[in-house]
Nucleic acid binder design. Sequence first.
RNA 1: GUGGGCGUAGCUCAGCUGGUGGUAGCUCCUGGUUGUGGUCCAGGCGGUCGUGGGUUCGAGUCCCAUCGCUCACCCCA
Length: 422
Amino acid sequence: MSDDFNAPRGTLDWLPARQAARHAMIERFRELCIGAGYAEAATPVFEEKALFSRTAGESSEVVGKEMYLFEDQGERMLALRPEFTASLMRLYLGNGLSREAQPVRLWCAGSCYRYAAVQRGRYREFTQVDAEAIGSDDPAVDADLIALQLRWYRALGLEGVELRINTIGDQGDREPYLALLRDYLDAHLDAVDDEIRRQRDVNPLRAFDTKHPPSQAVMANAPKIADHVSEAATEHFAAVRAFLDARGVEYTVDPTLVRGLDYYCRTTWEFAWPELGGQSGIGGGGRYDGLAESIGGPATPGVGFASGVERVLLALEEQERLPATPRPVDAFFAIFTPAARPELHALLDVARDAGVVCEADLAGRGVKGQMKQADRIGAARTVVCGDDEWTRRVCLVRDMTSGQQVEVPLAGLVEHLVNAKG
RNA sequence: GUGGGCGUAGCUCAGCUGGUGGUAGCUCCUGGUUGUGGUCCAGGCGGUCGUGGGUUCGAGUCCCAUCGCUCACCCCA
């Protein structure tokens, strides 16, 4: 086979089995969100570029080089959304949701886009589930979201997820700390690798993520942000942890955990499934109390998380825990007399209206082929209609498990199937 | 963006130091005496060996390029 077209690099075709699993995962997320008081919202797939560059920060990789950008016929500079948070904040601010009971809790699911090197678990079009609580700085909200995220992984049967949390303080804490960190890096420049030197000005926090062993040794003694944040932020973090402890959520405090997007402050967290290798981060979140102001809104606290559906799906596949999606078929109509097909196909609709899951041969198969098809799709019963039955206006209903057949008048077939269904 | 590995039927793969693509397995289709599935048997459909160049009498096999997949760096969900 030599097709002229492939799916664009970094995109996925979703065949029925995996699509059903993905759908089931999102459905599970929906149920948990509803149960926790989060309502579904949806935003456009593309937004003004500035919405993302102003919030995530020009220095972030995501905004700096991974956004899909395009100009429309009206010369507007647009971007395919790389994430949901900024869009949901825009939705909140632009639709007067600050007048509703706070915090406004929203969730959504859909595709996001980032132009990054493709790898297992990292695609250019990928699916995220997302939950946000906007309008309250109560530490209980942070814990509520973390618990919600964890409950999703548990509900899907994913085992072995690890949670790391940290606080990165308030906006006012950031600059003095970064100055401190830069001083420390400058004092050890000869011992760290080039990447860190390159990031020194733009994003020195990333130095903590280094995989270069000598650099790791240096960073182990570097000043940690959690030790240099305001008293208010420290207290807030302690409160978040108290809520998590009370809820029985296990975590490790990781003072080197930083997030890639500039708008985060205070609580940050990340869930990982280590066996996934390079893309082990399956979902992360954090607080973003300064985000609203960066897009011209009033000071509005917020906190939320996103999780990569493909990554969680990969983890579930490795654990052989894909959500099962059985499709119980009540009846297959095996029609051996061509003349009977139109009327029996019409009966399919009647039966379907009555709640019977049923189908018939659509490929001109012979007797054996039709029976085989009935078996293959797992039909509980097969309705057989050949010359003899058709002449007598009846059909045979065969129980595919026991092999027993009963004769049923065509006029009473649907009723019979409904009753047989139980 | 930078490196490593791989690319043979719908799927999983054989194919030895270049010499005519596999009775391979699974799937799919059709049969195995008159209208009945799951097992078994037989037959059939299906590949320009990712693509384009090159070396050679001859390339699936060697070389180059390109595209795709994959792993790592990087980034993040």
